[in-house]
Design a protein around this nucleic acid. Structure first.
Length: 817
RNA sequence: GCCGAAGUGGCGGAAUGGCAGACGCACUUGACUCAAAAUCAAGCGUGGUUUCCACGUGUCGGUUCGAGUCCGACCUUCGGCACCA
């Protein structure tokens, strides 16, 4: 057994700390590389393998960058507000602050044992007043910019617990605590106007180096659609409503209209005889989740209101229905139904026995094809618009209505404004007061933070916990000095995490959230690494906040994260997501204690694909422990050989072979490490070690100084991936501290040129023989060698050669027929 | 349901459209050992008539001299769906 283990981990962790090896040198900001890992949420009491997977492996990437000459900034902190701590408090009576701070302490210890380059001088914890003071400041800036506003919005409501539920707490339509059926309730809540930035959020995706799939998801989430808003009058009434449509060309095919069950007009227009049915249907819709409502396979439902709308062109009477497939939150909450040309409308009309006229036909056909026909084509049965193409028709119809003030072109987004109010305790208080005389009054910046009181009642009883704290609620109006009440809600924790990357480089600043001059040098983040579960929401919110602060004059860059990588997810051994309730959470501690931190790190790197993850299985941990021992034995062996003092100094073919593997490894490790492909990095290290062993075993007389050069390169290459161990070996080789101050090796292309290369020879795509040719052979020489290869000749008898494809250094394919 | 991915030996996983299975695990055999462990060496996709041949990357079809890789349809699993973070 080798000597590597936790005592070597401790030794180097201590030395790194004492020598401040990883302290960020502000004078070198010109060479800065801001490497950020999504910070941890301290809900469980311990770090699990998923954290290691994210932080440990990204740290290896950052270490390589450091050796390549970058001044690496790699901070760590905690996203400490949130629902789980509050639920835990309701269950156990332990205060969220106490449980959170104690979890953080444990996690800090475990993170130190990982041996990452975190500079703890820059730690941030979002639930502490010196951080959330600035989260509140952010709210005020958005408010000043007109980007924060209040409106009514529904929340999940449990009538039995009398409380607001998170989506997570609703289990198949029922409250997770008491199993009562969950309904919706409207509350006035704060929103951030992210939709104002919809276009920029869409366009600037082109400028950032993110996984393409993430960009696609964001594009789809924003969901830009270009269309028109058309106005319909309610018959025999002075009321009217607008619909959003991308297919104004099909307007003449509209046979009815549908309002969302929540649409404000529904109660006003419903005729008495339909009232009961309508209100029952509204209840039904209220209990459904949005995902259910958007299902395209479930049977369509809906109810007639008894009222009619006037068709804006023909003045025909169109029945007004309500149906759950129309959402209040998208477009105008109302649609014109064109069953001949829309799949959902078609299903609905068929079910309720309504006519299905056709107003668009495929260009160049007389016979109509599928119904509904959802493609573009030529307008028919559309009166004055007949014969126009769909594109021309859209334009003509909207312009025709626009003249009458009943239509306009309009772009609509699927993206909705960001609801930031939470009726919970464990979050940053919203920094406004409600004054009877002055209305909503923001707290002046100098009075921040609005501190979260420690003593409150968490029990769910229909009120925000803060609303029950008199001491917190009663205050004076900063404007008129009269009595006022604080806002009892707290901010969504996504607000805390939407700007933390701006605080990290300047975390102790008590005058401002950050020094703009400094932050404009340190940002944007050069590499951001976190889970794919954050592909849309967190990343979109952070991008929005960056843009909002830029426009408020605090930042000079447009995008917060230049490069992004998503690590995959390490599942429990059962293939399910690790969770306390499933009892499949794997702790890194036993592995660290038994084998040392680096063995776990190496195994995670070697055993999985970083962007895919997979179920945990520790069968291979022993293998990486063995690899580490193998390297240690090679270092010892080299010591013996040096002591013997024998050997030679030639670079003969045996040395050249080792040198090839060495430079192949340097090239591969540099390239694969760069793109987070750690499993092949470790493979290349193993191949290099295997080559050294083969050389040592097979060569009677060895070139010891050459071997030492190779081992030195091996340790440099291995250092990012096994930092404690490599540092120890580096010291044992008698080299100067620290291996992390060494320059990253660069491969020599000449060492990778082979004199003779082997080519596969195929006949009609099947490998039939192999030939060896000089690496400088011409295409003609290669063809001749292939055509005369021993095993090829039988395949050429009685057929003619039609074509020969030569792929240099790979293969020759002889096509015969 | 919608959006986005992924499916390769007994297992983890490699493969700029170019010899599928690198590197490991497990297993088998040999060396060393009184023995075991450790270590070292060799073998290891399936089938067959075994210097060779056929088959083989979720399923079916297509493009190509050549497809794990590109295209179309489908199946399964995973991530997200706006109050878990």
């Amino acid at each position: 057994m080798g000597s590597y283990g936790t005592s070597i981990d401790r030794k180097w962790q201590q030395k790194w700390a004492d020598s401040k090896l990883y302290s960020f040198n502000r004078d070198k900001v010109g060479k800065k590389l801001y490497c950020l890992e999504m910070f941890s949420y301290p809900s469980g009491n311990k770090l699990h393998l998923g954290h290691w997977w994210n932080y440990g492996l990204t740290d290896s990437w950052a270490r390589m960058k450091r050796m390549q000459g970058f001044e690496v900034f790699e901070p760590m902190g905690f996203d400490a507000f949130g629902l789980p701590a509050e639920n835990y408090a309701i269950k156990t009576g332990i205060h969220p602050k106490d449980s959170t701070m104690s979890n953080i302490e444990t996690m800090e210890r475990q993170l130190s044992e990982m041996g990452a380059m975190f500079d703890w001088d820059y730690e941030i914890i979002t639930c502490l007043p010196d951080y959330y003071k600035w989260t509140q400041w952010l709210f005020l800036k958005l408010y000043e910019s007109g980007l924060a506003y209040r409106k009514e919005a529904p929340v999940n409501w449990c009538p039995s617990c009398n409380t607001v539920l998170a989506n997570e707490q609703v289990v198949s339509g029922a409250c997770e605590r008491c199993d009562t059926e969950v309904t919706k309730k409207d509350l006035t809540q704060w929103f951030f106007k992210i939709t104002e930035y919809a276009d920029e959020l869409l366009e600037k995706l082109d400028d950032i180096n993110w996984p393409e799939k993430t960009k696609i998801m964001q594009r789809n989430w924003i969901g830009k659609s270009v269309g028109a808003e058309l106005t319909f009058k309610v018959a025999d009434s002075n009321r009217e409503f607008t619909v959003f449509t991308t297919r104004a060309d099909t307007l003449l095919g509209a046979t009815y209209v549908v309002l969302a069950p929540e649409h404000e007009l529904v109660d006003e227009i419903t005729v008495p005889e339909q009232r009961q049915q309508v209100s029952e249907y509204q209840d039904f819709a209220r209990k459904q989740s949005e995902i259910d409502r958007l299902s395209t396979t479930k049977e369509k439902t809906g109810v007639f209101t008894g009222a009619y709308a006037e068709h804006p062109v023909t003045a025909d009477k169109l029945p007004i229905w309500i149906a759950d497939y129309v959402l209040a939150s998208y477009g105008t909450g109302a649609v014109m139904a064109v069953p001949g040309h829309d799949t959902r409308d078609h299903e609905f009309a068929t079910k309720f026995d309504m006519p299905v006229p056709r107003v668009v036909k495929a260009a160049g056909t007389d016979v109509d094809d599928a119904i509904p026909f959802v493609e573009y084509g030529i307008l028919v049965n559309s009166g004055q618009f007949d014969g126009l193409t769909s594109d021309e028709g859209k334009k003509a119809i909207v312009e025709f209505l626009a003249e009458k003030g009943m239509g306009k072109f309009r772009t609509n987004y699927r993206l909705r404004d960001w609801l930031v109010s939470r009726q919970r305790y464990w979050g940053a208080p919203i920094p406004v007061v409600h004054c009877e005389g002055c209305g909503i009054v923001p707290i002046p910046e100098k009075d921040l933070p609005v501190e979260l009181p420690y003593n409150v009642e968490f029990a769910p009883d229909g009120k925000s916990p803060l609303a029950k704290s008199e001491e917190f609620m009663q205050t004076t109006c900063p404007h008129c000095g009269g009595p006022a009440q604080r806002d009892p809600d707290t901010l969504d924790t996504f607000v805390c995490s939407s700007w933390y990357y701006l605080r990290y480089p300047d975390p102790k600043n008590s005058e401002q959230p950050f020094d703009s001059e400094w932050i404009n040098q340190m940002l944007p983040v050069d590499m951001y690494v976190g889970g794919p579960e954050h592909a849309v929401m967190h990343l979109l919110y952070a991008r929005f906040i960056t843009k909002a602060l830029r426009d408020a004059g605090y930042l000079r860059f447009d995008e917060p994260f230049t490069n992004l990588v998503h690590q995959g997810i390490i599942l429990g051994p059962d293939g399910m997501r690790m969770s306390k309730s499933r009892g499949n959470v794997i702790s890194p501690d036993p592995y660290v204690n038994e084998h040392g931190s680096d063995v776990l790190r190496l195994y995670l790197q070697f055993g999985f694909n970083y962007t895919e993850g997979g179920p945990w299985n520790d069968d291979g941990v022993k293998a990486t422990a063995r690899f580490v021992d193998r390297v240690e034995r090679m270092v010892e062996r080299l010591g013996e050989l040096k002591a013997e003092g024998s050997g030679h100094s030639n670079m003969a073919s045996a040395e050249k072979d080792v040198n090839y593997v060495r430079h192949y490894a340097i090239k591969g490790i540099t390239e694969d490490g760069e793109r987070f492909q750690f499993n092949t990095v470790i493979s290349r290290l193993m191949e290099l070690v295997n080559a050294l062993y083969r050389y040592d075993n097979e060569q009677e007389s060895k070139n010891v100084s050459f071997m030492e050069d190779v081992v030195a390169d091996l340790l440099r290459l291995m250092a990012p991936y096994a930092p404690h161990f490599s540092e120890e070996m580096w010291e044992r080789m008698g080299y100067e501290y620290s291996v992390f101050n060494q320059e990253w090796p660069v491969h020599d292309p000449a060492a990778l040129v082979k004199d003779v290369v082997e080519l596969a020879v195929q006949v009609n795509g099947r490998v039939r023989d192999k030939i060896e040719v000089s690496s400088t052979a011409s295409e003609e020489e290669i063809k001749q060698a292939a055509l005369t290869a021993k095993n090829i000749l039988p395949y050429l008898e009685g057929v003619s050669v039609k074509k020969i494809v030569v792929i240099p250094k790979r293969l020759v394919n002889i096509v015969v027929g």
